[in-house]
Design a protein around this nucleic acid. Structure first.
Lengths: 336, 336
DNA sequence: ACACGATAAGACAGCGCTGACATTCGTGCT
DNA sequence: AGCACGAATGTCAGCGCTGTCTTATCGTGT
C-alpha cells in the first residue's frame, strides 16, 4: 500500500452498498436511516478510516467554516493568552474552534492578517485593535461576520466590544493611596496600548484632582521602549529631588519593571500595579485585578450572540476590576 | 441593500468582463494575465468587496487547508502559550495559520478534539500528548498528515518529537546543589505531566546517586492536586524532624508554590525551580531555564520539514536547558 | 384486497474555485 | 508568405459534501 488516499463519502457508500447521500445522513446525524444501515455504514467508514471533510461540508453549507478568529497583538504577553483561553473555552462549548493570529503589534500587518483570516471564512472575528482605523472591516461586518473588539474599542467601525473598567480601576487604586495620605503619586507605563493607557491615566488624574492635586504631569512617566524602560522610569522618578511616595503602574509589563526596582528601596514606596500576575501574592503586591479569562469568555459570548441575532443593538461591555490589597499598596507615606 | 451576499469569482468576472478563470489567475498570483486585465479585475473585485474563498480553494486543491493545529492541555499555563507563540511565529512565516484547541488535560477528550481538528483537514498536527496512547493517529500519519509530539513523546506512535533536556537539566541543578555540600535535597512536583516528571525525577536521583545518596524516596514529594498542594508539600518537607537543606521543584507550578513558602523561612533553604518565570530574577530565584518559544518554533519547523519530505527519518529533538544562577540556588547548607 | 401515509433511500445539482486542455492572437523567423 | 511559438484568455469538469426532490418500501385500517 503506497500513498493510499483519503476515503470519501462515495468510497464508504460503495463499500457499504448504499448511496453517498445515506452515508452523509449518517454522519450529519440527520434521521431517516435504519439502525441496520447505520451500522453497516459506520463499519465501512471505520474500515476505510473515513473522516468527513469539513472543508467540503462548510463550502456546501454556504461557505462558512466553524472557526472563529482571534487576532492578538503579542502572543508573549500573558494577558492576551488568558483572554485566548477564555475565548477558546467558550467557543469549544459551541463546537467552534479558535484560530489564533498575531499582528506583532504592528498596525500595518493588522489588515493583512485579518484578510487572510477572512479568506478562511471564519464565522466571527475577535480582534484586539492595533491599527488606528478599523473601517476596512465595515464591509465584512455588513456581510454578516460578527466583529468583536477586545480590550480596546475599534476605531471608525461599529462593533461590539468588551473592555476593562480601566478608568474606574485606576481611579480606585489611586484613591486608596490618597486615602492613606499620599499626594505625590507617580504613574509609570509603556504606551503599548494607547487606549488603555489613556483611560487609566485619566482615572489616575481624576482621582488626584479629587484631592486637589492638579499638577499631575510631573509625576507621569510614559515611555516608548517596552520592557526595560519601566525600570528606568521608576528609578528616574525616585531619584528626583522631590520623589513620589507612591507609584502606580499602568500595566503588567510596567509592574514587573517597577517591582524589580522597588523591592530593595528604602524608605519603602507604596505601589499598586494594574493587571494581576503570578506570584504577586507571594510578593505582597497590591494590584488592580480582574478576571482575564472572563474578558475572553465575554468576547466569545458577544460573537455568539451576534451570530444568533445580527440585527441586535451593538453592545459595549465592561469587565469590572477590583483592588486586591496585598500590602504594597497599603504603605503609608513617610511623616515628613 | 439588504443582506447582499458575498461576491464570488464569477461575480467579479462578470463585472470585469472576463472569465472566472482569469480572475482566479489574478488572485492565485499565477502569471499570464496582462497588466491591463489585472487592473480591471482588481478594480471590480474591490468594488464588490471580493475576497477569495479559501475553503473552496483548499477543497479544490486536494482537500487540505492551510492551517496547522496545536493541541494543548491547559491554556492557562504560561509554559504552553509561550510554546504556542513560537509555533505561531514559525508558521506565519510560511503562510500557515495556527488553530488552537484544548484537551483540558483530560485524556478522554484528546481523541475527540483531535478528530474535530482532522476533520478540518489541518495540514499538520502538533500535539502535547495527554492520553497514554496515540496509536489512533497512525492511520492519519500514514495518510500524510505530519504529527509532531511536543514536550512529551507520543506513545505507541511513530512521530517526530521535541522535548526538553529534562533529565540533564534537573541533574545539573541537583549537582550544583551537591557541589555546595547539600545532601538532603527535597523534590517537589505535581504529576500533571507524567513523562516530564519521570525524566526530571530521574535526573534528580541520578545526580544524588553520584554523591552517594541513595535513599532519595524520602525526599520526594509528588502530589496529585495541582496548584495548591505544592505549597503543602514543601511545608510538610520542612516541618519534618530532619528537614532538607535544599529543594528543587519539578515544574513552574510547583516553583510558584515553593516560592510562596520559602520566602520567609529561616534558616534559608536553597531552592532551584524547573522552568523560568516572570520576576524570577527580581525574586532571585535560581532556575533551570530554556527557550520556551524555541520549543514551539522547533516543533513547527519539524512539521514543515515533514511536510516537505514525508519519507525522512523520524526525528527526536531535545531543547537544551541551562542553569540560571540568581541566588536562591547558591545558598549553602547550614554548618551543623 | 386496496388506498394511503410514513419512513428509508437514492438521484442530481451545485457550493466557489482551479487543473487540464483548448483557443485566439500577435510576433519573429525562414 | 507561411509557420512556429508563446502569451493571454477561455471552457469544462469536478474537489467532497449536502439540500431538494423523487422513488421505493412497508404497515395499517377498512
Amino acid at each position: 500500500m503506497t500513498t493510499q488516499s483519503r476515503a470519501t463519502l462515495a468510497d464508504v457508500a460503495r463499500l457499504a452498498g448504499v448511496s453517498s447521500k445515506t452515508v452523509s445522513r449518517v454522519f450529519a446525524g440527520a434521521g431517516n436511516v435504519s439502525a441496520e444501515t447505520r451500522e453497516r455504514v459506520l463499519g465501512s467508514a471505520k474500515r476505510l478510516r473515513f473522516r468527513p471533510n469539513n472543508l467540503a461540508r462548510s463550502l456546501r453549507r454556504g461557505g462558512v467554516s466553524n472557526t472563529v478568529a482571534f487576532v492578538i497583538g503579542d502572543l508573549t504577553n500573558p494577558f492576551y493568552f488568558h483572554v485566548a483561553a477564555g475565548i477558546e473555552r467558550e467557543l469549544a462549548a459551541s463546537g467552534l474552534t479558535m484560530v489564533l493570529a498575531t499582528t506583532d503589534d504592528t498596525p500595518e500587518s493588522e489588515e493583512v492578517v485579518v484578510d487572510a483570516l477572512l479568506a478562511q471564512r471564519v464565522r466571527a472575528l475577535l480582534l484586539i485593535p492595533v491599527a488606528d482605523d478599523q473601517s476596512y472591516l465595515d464591509g465584512e461586518r455588513q456581510l454578516g461576520t460578527p466583529v468583536i473588539s477586545v480590550d480596546r474599542p475599534a476605531r471608525n467601525l461599529l462593533a461590539d466590544s468588551v473592555v476593562l473598567a480601566n478608568r474606574q480601576g485606576m481611579a480606585d487604586a489611586v484613591r486608596s493611596l490618597t486615602a492613606l495620605g499620599h499626594r505625590k503619586i507617580g504613574f509609570v507605563s509603556n504606551p503599548s496600548a494607547m487606549y488603555t493607557l489613556r483611560e487609566r491615566l485619566g482615572g489616575y488624574r481624576e482621582a488626584l484632582q479629587e484631592v486637589g492635586v492638579t499638577d499631575t504631569a510631573r509625576w507621569e512617566r510614559v515611555d516608548d521602549d517596552p520592557a526595560i524602560s519601566a525600570e528606568q522610569a521608576v528609578r528616574d522618578l525616585l531619584d528626583r529631588a522631590d520623589p513620589p511616595t507612591a507609584i502606580v503602574a499602568g500595566n503588567n509589563r510596567a509592574s514587573a519593571g517597577a517591582v524589580r526596582v522597588l523591592r530593595d528601596r528604602e524608605p519603602a514606596v507604596a505601589f499598586i500595579g494594574f493587571d494581576d500576575f503570578e506570584l504577586a501574592d507571594a510578593l505582597g503586591i497590591t494590584v488592580v485585578g480582574y478576571d482575564t479569562m472572563e474578558l475572553g469568555r465575554t468576547a466569545a459570548r458577544l460573537a455568539l450572540e451576534r451570530l444568533a441575532d445580527p440585527s441586535d443593538f451593538t453592545k459595549q461591555l465592561e469587565i469590572p476590576t477590583r483592588l486586591i490589597h496585598r500590602g504594597s499598596g497599603e504603605i503609608r507615606p513617610p511623616l515628613t
